[in-house]
């Protein structure tokens, strides 16, 4: 240890909130949910059921859409839709 030792700042174990923290998880998908807009009644059941938050709603009153970059293709949105406004299609 020399007297002119450089005093480095501590590296603390802090992680920062990041979209896509696990990468583009859309690549996990084998099939994808697709909206049939004319059937959608904007009940947003799909939005609340989606574990990932990949069903997006721009602002209140808008049609929801899917963020395919991250959608893992679980199909929950399709399963909960009361009006058949979503269907699973193979990738």
């Amino acid at each position: 240890m020399t007297e002119e030792h450089e005093l480095k700042d501590p590296v603390l174990p802090l992680g920062r909130p990041t979209i896509g923290s696990a990468g583009n998880t859309g690549t996990w998908r084998t099939s994808k949910p697709v909206f049939i807009e004319e059937n959608c009644i904007k009940c947003y059941q799909c939005w609340v059921a989606c574990p990932e938050g990949t069903i997006r709603v721009d602002s209140k009153g808008e049609f929801p859409y899917v963020d395919y970059v991250y959608c893992k293709g679980c199909g929950m949105c399709v399963h909960v839709c009361p009006k058949g406004a979503l269907e699973m299609k193979p990738e």
């Binding site: 923290s21 696990a22 939005w47 990932e52 990949t54």
Partner: peptide, 26 residues
């Protein structure tokens, strides 16, 4: 109402390690 729940920005950001269909995430 579901729209009440949309008030806040996402607390869980998309594109994470959770399995597809994860109940914990919901």
């Amino acid at each position: 109402k579901i729209t009440d729940m949309m008030d806040r920005p996402d607390v869980l950001l998309r594109g994470n390690f959770a399995c597809a269909g994860c109940g914990l995430s919901v």
